[in-house]
Amino acid sequence: MSIQHFRVALIPFFAAFCLPVFAHPETLVKVKDAEDQLGARVGYIELDLNSGKILESFRPEERFPMMSTFKVLLCGAVLSRVDAGQEQLGRRIHYSQNDLVEYSPVTEKHLTDGMTVRELCSAAITMSDNTAANLLLTTIGGPKELTAFLHNMGDHVTRLDRWEPELNEAIPNDERDTTMPAAMATTLRKLLTGELLTLASRQQLIDWMEADKVAGPLLRSALPAGWFIADKSGAGERGSRGIIAALGPDGKPSRIVVIYTTGSQATMDERNRQIAEIGASLIKHW
């Protein structure tokens, strides 16, 4: 067993022997301040990774656009098919120029040779490549099948209805392509620590998230040296922004954090800054 596999296998073990965790309302004060600064709703939840206990939450059962955070769930569904012998990570998928959609920095470079399922998941999570996500959605049967996968996990809230990039439209009061912070946090925890996926697939999923290259201005910008984070960000229309993450000190994750916002007129930089400040408060009061 590799060191990384050992780390993920012992996530519940280490967490069980940690000192009790206590909620700190100071972080919620910052979440509410972010709402004021952005002029928009902000949803927040913080779960203990081992027990699933909610440590703090704000608007945990209000719907927010998922945006690209759905790509972690998508690759979880792909990995479940791999575990069941219905898919192979090494299978190569070929596609054409007509398949390319807006923001496809990886797939646009491989029109000639195609990409493997493993490479597509890596591109979808680490670079948020939209064509990679659409190609992977095709392998599982489309958005409705991802929703069905989530329902089978016990998540009857999260739903995907459309493809990239239309799913980022974020129309107010439109339930399409949305989740709730509580539902997303619980589902992410199941994917990373539950028995739904094999140990190898859980490790692969967290490795992809740990290698995320496009979430630097968010929670990662607030992390002290030595902290662990595996995350996936999302951005959408109407001032929408979000991030889902597993993080913790001492090089291992111990909490799940989900943050979503929508309806702001603020710039992307300002949305990023507010999420980073929430992260800084979380870490300060850990």
Rank of each mutant, 00 (worst) to 15 (best):
E119C: 00
A183W: 11
D207N: 02
N50R: 10
A132R: 02
G234E: 11
E164V: 05
L89V: 03
L219D: 14
V78N: 00
A124S: 06
E61W: 05
G242Q: 03
A280H: 14
S254K: 10
P105V: 04
T131H: 06
K190P: 15
Q97R: 03
K144D: 01
I54M: 13
I45R: 09
H24Y: 10
R162L: 00
A222E: 14
S254R: 07
M180Q: 13
W208C: 04
Q86C: 03
S96R: 07
T261Y: 14
Y103A: 14
M66K: 02
D155N: 05
G263V: 00
S51G: 06
R273Y: 09
L49E: 00
K213V: 06
E169F: 00
R59E: 06
N134E: 01
E62S: 12
C75Y: 00
L73Q: 01
R159K: 14
L100W: 14
L205R: 03
R238C: 01
E26Q: 09
R118Q: 15
P172F: 04
T178S: 10
D250H: 10
D48C: 08
L135H: 04
M153V: 08
I125N: 11
D231A: 15
L28K: 01
T262Y: 13
H110G: 00
I243C: 06
F58L: 04
T186N: 12
Q204L: 08
R238T: 00
T27Y: 13
R162A: 00
A235T: 00
I206C: 13
R189C: 15
L55Y: 10
N152A: 12
I278T: 13
G85R: 07
M115G: 04
A40Y: 03
D99A: 10
E169R: 00
Q203F: 00
D83F: 12
R273P: 14
H24R: 05
T267Y: 05
Q265R: 09
T126S: 10
Y103V: 13
E277C: 05
D33R: 08
R238H: 01
L197S: 09
Y95N: 15
F149K: 08
L100Q: 02
R271P: 14
G216F: 14
V257S: 15
R176C: 02
C75A: 05
L136F: 06
G279T: 15
H94F: 08
Q97D: 00
G194E: 11
R176A: 00
E108Q: 09
F64E: 03
R238F: 09
T158S: 13
L100S: 05
G242R: 11
L137C: 01
R159G: 13
Q97L: 06
A34W: 02
V78S: 03
L135P: 05
P224I: 09
S80V: 15
K32I: 08
S233G: 15
T131P: 05
Y260R: 13
E169T: 13
N98W: 10
S201W: 00
S122M: 09
V42Y: 13
S80G: 13
E61C: 01
L111M: 08
A185M: 08
A230P: 09
N152Q: 11
A170E: 02
M153I: 07
G226M: 11
M209P: 05
D83C: 02
G242M: 08
D33Q: 04
I283H: 06
V31I: 13
T138I: 06
A132D: 05
P181E: 04
D212S: 15
D99C: 14
I229V: 12
V72M: 01
R63L: 10
A182T: 07
E26A: 02
L49V: 02
A148L: 06
D36T: 13
D177F: 01
A77H: 10
H94W: 12
H24P: 00
G154P: 04
I229P: 10
P253I: 11
A133Q: 03
T262S: 08
